[in-house]
Every structure is written in structure tokens, then in C-alpha cells.
Design a protein around this nucleic acid. Structure first.
Lengths: 337, 337
DNA sequence: CCTGGCACTCACGCTTCCTGAGTGCCAAGT
DNA sequence: ACTTGGCACTCAGGAAGCGTGAGTGCCAGG
């Protein structure tokens, strides 16, 4: 159906269009790539490719432009991820290694991705729900006020203020702290919710009111998956001379955390690199963009996703290389800390 | 030098230009505002205003447009902050009151400002340096690894991992914790740095290596004023039909935390509302924008700044009203928590 | 000092024209 | 059965020309 040369033509069209941002014609193609056939032949091939929906012409008698379907074929079969240079890899590693704390890791990751790809980078915070409780700390700030600090194995720290119904003493707090840590340490957060729910019985009746307040805060905190934040950066790259159309929509979509979450969720269920092209994206405002995403995580598990968002006419091999490399290194960093 | 009517004319020009985004001519002026003089008179006034540099014409025989100097005069003498409606004020209060935790307060503030003003909102995290230590918690995660959690009175929680040179026991940690809290509780962070520096002597020689590690982390953490993060939102409002020129620069400047910090710092030394118009802004990319900023804080003190960034042709009275109201309410919320 | 009148200017929108890159198709060549 | 050169055709985009109207500056009279 599509012989070898037609595929080569498609590949060439994608590559040229990506680099020049102008519809590419038959003559230019034979010149720039060494297909040793004449323009007329290419034209025939292009006619077929167009008929099949891989390329299109913006208007009669202009060159051809890849369609979403064309990019899809290109990504799936005609290109390979372009690995980063050794220098780049080293730079990534050292830059990420300097990070202290989860916030900093995420922030650096965003910057890194944005700079490497010259596009918009999106990074999701490691999911709380899959991680494991490392420690719970209760701090008595005032007789009727506690601070609950929850530390997970991914280095994430969550805290909440709790106003108690009754005044409490240091020893009450110590008791609760010991109880909570004994019960929750090493448990997954998803399990922890259930465990905490059944914990009230272990508390002496006198302290139950206060304990209940603390427990409910912990449960609320844990159950709250919405809390999974998303950070992005590199929006200045959106203002690149080309796709100014729809810029507003794109910015809007970026700021809608919920929408972004959904998109990332749709992107791929697993840790694999995944590419979502143009109209494949369910979100209205992002249908002129492509999203290259990957899961990342420490150990075998995927904790969250990160992605790069750019115009459909993007350098897929390069972007994929960058995303995949950064995902791997972030995973490593999270392992260590 | 500028009589009453000329000022009125300037005010009218600013108001019209802001609302229409088109150069305003003498005829339109007399029509829309009830200046009971003829267009010709207005023209004379405009000639004077132009000569003095308050307005300019984009090209000969087009209407006039305010210059930065014109906006400045308008802001300083011709306009008053427009207070928010009661409904808006209530909405702000309830929306902010729902926030839990500092992060959430900041995030909500950004959204609020961006929505109210339909422009870009910038909020700086409350400064660490002026706040007061409420508690320090040390958590022993592993024999050679501690988590240091620092809680300030503004609800900010900072944490750092510390790798110890030697393994430690729970009692060592308890000792350090007690020592730190006894020495630092209630102290300002600025003072705390000095205090910690002198604390090594109080530690028994056996534990000094570990203590030094912890202390140095605390000091680094505190001294690090760069750490003062800035959050912004509403960038989609940048894509408003008008100022697309320089959009790239603006986005770029926004993402440069350091630059933003400096601008906010320059803006006004005190908690007062301050307006920076166009070229008054030292940052290259922001010279087509105006920044309306205000300090905010709990109690009498200014902890940080928040601001709204928009085109120089912005609705100053409205924006100023919004900024000032939000600043006040955020202050109140911080007080409570 | 205000006003009406008048000549002048010029950005913007409109049409028109032209050019060249690019196409589709066909008939001849391999 | 594919490739190729030739040829007529199309059409976006830029250049040039034109008209219009909003807006101006200036002046002379109230």
C-alpha cells in the first residue's frame, strides 16, 4: 500500500516541514534529500499520500503539510528517539543532583525540560496515593492547635493545621504520635486511610475528641487526590513566531490543573513514552498541539507523569529523547532521596 | 501650568483610551464626556498636553494616546482607587477563608487577582526572614539521615533532608531538638542564624559532628533569601487581542524569578500600594506593561508583595482597588492561621 | 480665551495586478 | 508498470494605486 519510497517521502516531508515551517514542495524535496528520482515521481507519491490522508495542502498549489495522521505514522514507524548527547546527559544529571527537596526537584525538572526542548514543560508531582508513609509528626503549637506533618518516601511533605476541640498536653500528643507512627509507618497511603479510620478505639476515651479531629484531618489529607499538583514552565516558548493562533486557549488549558491532569492521565497508562498528536487530544484548546509524555518514578513504580507540550509540528525524535532521558534521571534522583 | 480643564481632558483621554484601545480624538471627547466646550478648544488643550509630554499621537492626524508620563499623572492626581463592590469583597473573603495551609492561600490569591483584574497576577511567598520561628522538628528517618522541619508563624513550613556523618540514636535527636527549640522558639529568623552559629558549644563533644551538619543545614536554609518563591497566574490574559507585541518578553520575564523579585523589590519599600508604569520598570521586557503592587502581611508588618501586571493601558482605579483589597484580606487570613 | 471654518495629512481598507512556486495530467521513454 | 519531462493551470502573497474619513493645525472673528 505504501512502498518504501513513499514512506521515505513522508519522512522527508515531516522533517523539512518541522525545520522550515513552510509547506514543502516536490522540487525542494528532491533537492534537500537525495532521493534519486525526479520531482514528477515525487508528485505522484505525494498524491497517493494525500489521498490516504497523511499529508494535505493548505491551499491548492502550495506544498504539502503533514496531517496529524501523517505525524502519527512518522512517530510510530519512521523515526527513532534521538538520544541526547553525552554532554547534555551530564548536564542534566548534575543539575538535578543539586536539588534539595521535592519542590526543588520538580522545579528543576520543569526548567530542564523547557530548556532542552524549547517548549512548554509540564511536570506532575509524584502521586501521594502510591507512596508510603515514612513518618508522621505532630507538633503542639498551642494548647488547642496542632500541626500535623506527613512525610512520604518520595520526600514529599504535607502539613496541615488542626484546631482541637479541647486543650491538650504534650503527653497526649506524644501518645498520638506514637500510635500513628506505629500503625502507619511503612504503609501505603491508600491503605493508611482505612487504618486510621479504625484507630479511634485504641485511644483512651478522654482523648477521643481530639484524636478524632486529628484523624479526620489525616484522612482528608490522604484521600485528597486532587491535591496532586502540576507545575509547568517555558510558556515563553509558546510565543515562538509560528503558532500564535490558539495561544490563548493553550495558556488557558495549561492553567486548568484539572484539565491537564486528565490529559496526562489519558496519555498513557504506563511508564512508557507516549505521544499524543493534535486532535488526538481530547481537550479543545490543545488540538493544535502535541504532547510527549512519560511516566517517571523511583524503583519499578510510576509515581507521576511529565510531559512536553508543543506545536504538532515539533521535533518528535528530539523531544522524545529529552523527555525520556529526563524522566529516567528524575526517577533516579527520587530513589536516592 | 495645567489648568483644571486640561487635567479633565487628560483624564478623559486616559479613560477613553483604556476602554476603547483606540487613539482618541477631540470630537469623540466632547461627545462622550460632557465638557461643554467645542472640539477646537479641546484641540488646543491637547496641543499643550502633547507639548508637555503627557500624550502623543501614534502618527500625524490620528487621535492622541496617553504617554507613560500621562498615565503617571492620571494615577497620581486624577484618579482614585475604585473600591470593589460589596459582593466582590464577600466573594474574596469566603474564597480565601476556605484555604488551608500557606500554599493554598498563595494559590488562591493568585487566582483571585487574575480573575478580578483579568490580568496577570504575581504573588510572592511571605518572606522567611521577617518571620518568627514557631517550632523546629527533627525526624530520624534512618540512623544517618534526619529530616529537619522548620515552622514559622506565617504557617510556612520548610524541610530539608540531612545526611549525618555518623549514625545517631533517638536520644541524640531528642537532645538536639530540645536545644534548638529552647534557643530559637519565638526568635526572628534573621536572628536565628546568629544564634545557631553559637550553639555548637552547648553540644557534648561526642555529638558535635552530627550537630554541625544539622546546624549548617538550618543556617543555609534560613540565610537563603533567594528561596523566596514567586507564583503567578492568569497568563492567558496576556493573549488578549491587544498587546501581543512583546508577549514573549513578558512571559520570559515572568519566568525569571530573580528578575521578578527585583522588580517587586523596587516597586515600593513599604506596604503602600504602588504603581510602576511602562518605562519606569527597569526590566527590558516589561516596559510596555504596568505593575500595580502592594505589600501584604499579618499584623503591622509587610511580609511580602503581591502585584498585578498588565498593559500600560490598564484600568488603574479598578486594578488598584482589587490589589489593595486582596492584599488586605490575605493579610487577615495570615493573621488567623 | 473660545469657536467655527478650512485646508491638509495620512493610516487603513479596498481593489487590482503580477509573479512564482507548486500542482495535475499526459504522452513518451525505459 | 513505473519514471520522466513538458505544459497548462491555480492561487497565495506582495506591490501598487486609490479613496475615504477621522483627525489635525491654524486662523480670523466673536
Amino acid at each position: 500500500m505504501l512502498d518504501e519510497r513513499k514512506l521515505a517521502v513522508l519522512r522527508a516531508i515531516v522533517e523539512d516541514y518541522v525545520s522550515t515551517n513552510e509547506p514543502v514542495g516536490s522540487k525542494a524535496l528532491v533537492d534537500r534529500h537525495n532521493l534519486d528520482v525526479s520531482p514528477a515521481t515525487i508528485r505522484n507519491d505525494m498524491a497517493v499520500l494525500e489521498e490516504q490522508g497523511y499529508i494535505a495542502q493548505p491551499h491548492t498549489s502550495a506544498g504539502r503539510v503533514p496531517t496529524d495522521k501523517g505525524y502519527r505514522l512518522f512517530v510510530d514507524r519512521l523515526s527513532h528517539m534521538k538520544p541526547l548527547s553525552a554532554a547534555e546527559r551530564r548536564a542534566i544529571q548534575t543539575y538535578l543532583a543539586q536539588a534539595y527537596g521535592l519542590d526543588d526537584v520538580v522545579m528543576r525538572t520543569v526548567r530542564l525540560l523547557a530548556q532542552l526542548t524549547r517548549q512548554v514543560a509540564v511536570v506532575q508531582y509524584p502521586s501521594l496515593s502510591r507512596s508510603v508513609v515514612r513518618h508522621i509528626e505532630l507538633v503542639r503549637l498551642a494548647p488547642e492547635r496542632l500541626l500535623v506533618v506527613l512525610i512520604t518516601d518520595t520526600g514529599r511533605v504535607e502539613q496541615r493545621m488542626v484546631d482541637l476541640p479541647e486543650p491538650c498536653e504534650d503527653e497526649d500528643v506524644a501518645f498520638l504520635r506514637a500510635l500513628l507512627n506505629a500503625s502507619l509507618d511503612g504503609r501505603r497511603l491508600t491503605d493508611a486511610v482505612r487504618i486510621v479510620a479504625g484507630l479511634t478505639d485504641s485511644v483512651p476515651p478522654a482523648g477521643r475528641a481530639n484524636a478524632a479531629a486529628v484523624f479526620s484531618v489525616i484522612m482528608a489529607n490522604l484521600a485528597e487526590r486532587n491535591e496532586e499538583r502540576i507545575v509547568f514552565g517555558g510558556t515563553a516558548n509558546l510565543a515562538a513566531p509560528d503558532f500564535s493562533q490558539g495561544l490563548r486557549d493553550v495558556l488557558q488549558a495549561l492553567e486548568e490543573q484539572v484539565v491537564l491532569m486528565r490529559v496526562l492521565g489519558d496519555a498513557s497508562d504506563e511508564s512508557l513514552l507516549s505521544v499524543m498528536i493534535g486532535t488526538e487530544n481530547p481537550v479543545e484548546g490543545l488540538q493544535t498541539t502535541s504532547l510527549v509524555s512519560s511516566g517517571y518514578g523511583s524503583g519499578g513504580e510510576t509515581l507521576a507523569k511529565l510531559a512536553v507540550l508543543g506545536p504538532t509540528r515539533m521535533d518528535y525524535p528530539g523531544t522524545m529523547g529529552a523527555v525520556s532521558a529526563v524522566a529516567r534521571y528524575v526517577g533516579e534522583i527520587l530513589m536516592e532521596s
